[in-house]
Each structure stands twice: as C-alpha cells, then as structure tokens.
C-alpha cells in the first residue's frame, strides 16, 4: 500500500512538472521563473509572454491534461467490460462516429454551400464539435442498444468494429465527392491536436470533463466485479446488462467529448491502462482508475511537449507522438511483467 501511494504521488508530481514544462518550452522559450510569475500575476513580464502563456499554452496544456485523463479512463473501462486487452476507446467505432460527423459537416458544407467550412472561423469550430458529438453519440447509442441484445462480449466487440468500418466507408464515399481543400481540412482534423480548443470552448470542455470523470469513478465496484467474468459477477449480485449499459455509456461519452474537441487521439486510451497495471501490479479499479487518470494526464502532457519541440514547430501531429512514445513503453512494460511473473 505504501508503495502505491508513493507511486501515485510521484505521478501527480510529474503532472505538475510536465505542465510547467509545457508552459515554458515551445517555439518561443520562456524561462520557468517568468512562467511562474505570469501564472501568479507577480512581477511584470513582457506582454508577449503573458499572451503566449495565457492564450495559447495554458489552454493547450489543460486540454492535453484533461483529454489524456478522459481517454485513459475510457480505455480502462472498455478493456474491463470487454475483458480484452486490445480494446480501447477507438475500438467500438465511437471515434469513427465522431469522424463521420465531422466528415459530413466539412465535406458536405463545401459541396452544398460552396464555402469550405475551414474558412468559417469560430462557427466552423463549433459546428465541427457539435457534429463530432452527434456522430459519436449516435454510434454509441447503436452500440449500447446492441449490447443489451447480444450476450457475448466478443460478438459485441466485433459488431462495434464492424460499425467502425461502416463509418469509415461512409467517410470514404464523402471524401470521394469532395474538393481537395475540404479533404485537407478533414485530414488535419483527423490528425488530432490539443491546440484546437481555445478560450470559452476550452472552459466548456474542461467543465464537461470535470463532471464526467468523477462520474466514471462511480463505476469502480461494477468494474471490479466485471473482472471476474459474467457468471461470477452475476452471482455476486451484479446486473450484467445494466452494468454494461453504464460502463459503455460512460466510456463512450468520454471518448465522444474528447474526440469532438481534440480530434481522434489514438493510442493513449489503449496504452495507459496497460502501463498502470504494469506499474501498480493490480487489477483493482480502486487503484487503476485514479492511476489511469493521472498517468493519462501526464503522458498526454509529455506527448504534447514532444509534438511542440523546437524543430517540429507544432507541425508534428499528436497522434504520431502518442504512438511513437506509447508503443515502446507498453512493450517494455509487458516484457517486465512477464519477468516478474516468472520470478514470483
């Protein structure tokens, strides 16, 4: 227990460190001391620095933090409810749903209105967010409906993947009929970014997530029971159907919101839960949930930092970074786990 709390504190500390680094590093280097001063409003730092920090870096870092936490929790829930280590937020096609919604708006608006949505500014942004949420929630509704009808987890998983394919196919068709400019706008959205959210929207995003993430913690006992498998969970008094409904809904809404604001961020949701299990050697969601939250936030900040490293100049998409950083980490954790199992 001692070990766990120490680890947890280290991870929380790392969030603070990476958060500050996120504010300090970038194409314009701002010394940590000035970052500190700007944050607390002391001293008189140059206005440029204040603007960069408050208008660009703080929203970006906060978005990364919250998105990372949300995706990781969602991934953890998916892996538990499907009892499948490969499950993740994107696997049920919920993020494809978001992409489909966005594709409809971006690609059709060009065709119908004659104006590419990317030129519409703030309205375009809101439209994209709304479209993504509608798209992902409608796919989620289908999945939840199906989850109440079919029994096996694998069946449900396959149906989810199939729905994802259908969504991708629809996107493909839409792309085929669109002008190049719109496709480019869509592709850029699809790369994922923590910097797209700004100002009021950021506040809204963080508020929504601040409500949803604690709500997902209410499912901890349910998730622990689901670990035992349907039969045992049921025998211990769990209503499997209801449990599935809530877990998938919770996980799905988290992904939907994050995807709507940041685009489809891959890999974090899949990798972080594995990382946490490796670090804490447990399957207990009372530890894994907060662990996923903190580790997810921390890793998202690291990824954002790398994506913005001097030299890349913000050109590197977050998705490439998450996979590049995440894959080796997961593999190494899995290797270590094997070893420790044999030693026991």
């Amino acid at each position: 227990m001692k070990r766990n709390s120490t680890l947890m504190l280290c991870i929380i500390a790392s969030i603070f460190v990476f958060f500050l680094l996120n504010l300090a590093l970038g194409s314009v280097h701002i010394p940590l001391r000035s970052v500190w001063n700007v944050l607390w409003g002391i001293g008189d730092e140059p206005l440029v620095h204040q603007n960069i920090i408050w208008k660009s870096r703080v929203p970006q870092a906060l978005t990364a933090l919250v998105a990372g936490a949300g995706l990781s929790i969602s991934g953890l829930q998916m892996q538990t409810v499907f009892r499948n280590p490969l499950a993740g937020p994107s696997v049920l096609g919920i993020s494809s749903g978001a992409s489909m919604g966005v594709a409809f708006v971006v690609l059709l608006s060009g065709a119908i209105g004659g104006v590419a949505l990317s030129r519409l500014g703030i309205f375009g942004e809101i439209a994209l967010t709304v479209a993504a949420i509608i798209g992902s929630l409608s796919i989620m509704a289908i999945i939840v409906y199906v989850s109440q009808k079919v029994k096996g987890n694998v069946t449900l998983l396959i149906i989810g993947v199939m729905i994802g394919y259908v969504a991708s196919a629809v996107i493909g068709v839409l792309k085929f009929f669109s002008v190049e400019e719109d496709i480019r706008a869509y592709v850029i959205w699809g790369l994922g970014s923590f910097s797209r959210v700004s100002g009021d929207q950021m506040v809204l995003f963080i508020c929504i997530m601040a409500v949803l993430i604690p709500l997902s913690f209410l499912l901890i006992k349910t998730l622990n029971l689901l670990l035992l498998g349907d039969g045992y969970a049921r025998n211990l008094g769990l209503n499997i159907r209801r449990a599935r409904f809530w877990v998938i809904t919770c996980s799905g809404v988290l992904v939907a919101i994050v995807t709507a604001y940041c685009g489809p961020i891959i890999f974090l949701g899949l990798a972080v839960p594995h990382l946490c299990r490796g670090i804490f050697h447990t399957s207990d969601h009372r530890i894994l949930m907060p662990a996923s939250l903190f580790v997810g936030a921390s890793i998202a900040l690291i990824c954002n930092l790398i994506a913005r490293m001097p030299g890349f100049e913000g050109a590197l998409p977050v998705n490439s970074v998450t996979a590049l950083v995440g894959a080796p980490v997961v593999v190494s954790v899995l290797f270590n786990k094997r070893k420790s199992e044999f030693n026991e």
Binding site: L228, Y232, L236, L238, R277, S283, D284
Partner: peptide, 17 residues
Amino acid sequence: CEIRNMNVEELVGMGRS
C-alpha cells in the same frame, strides 16, 4: 477466471461484494 494482476486474497475478497 482469466484474471491477471489480482492476488488470491483479493479474489476471495470479491466474494464479499
């Protein structure tokens, strides 16, 4: 029961749910 990373005591403890 395909549980990983859970020790025997914890698993038996699930019986108390």
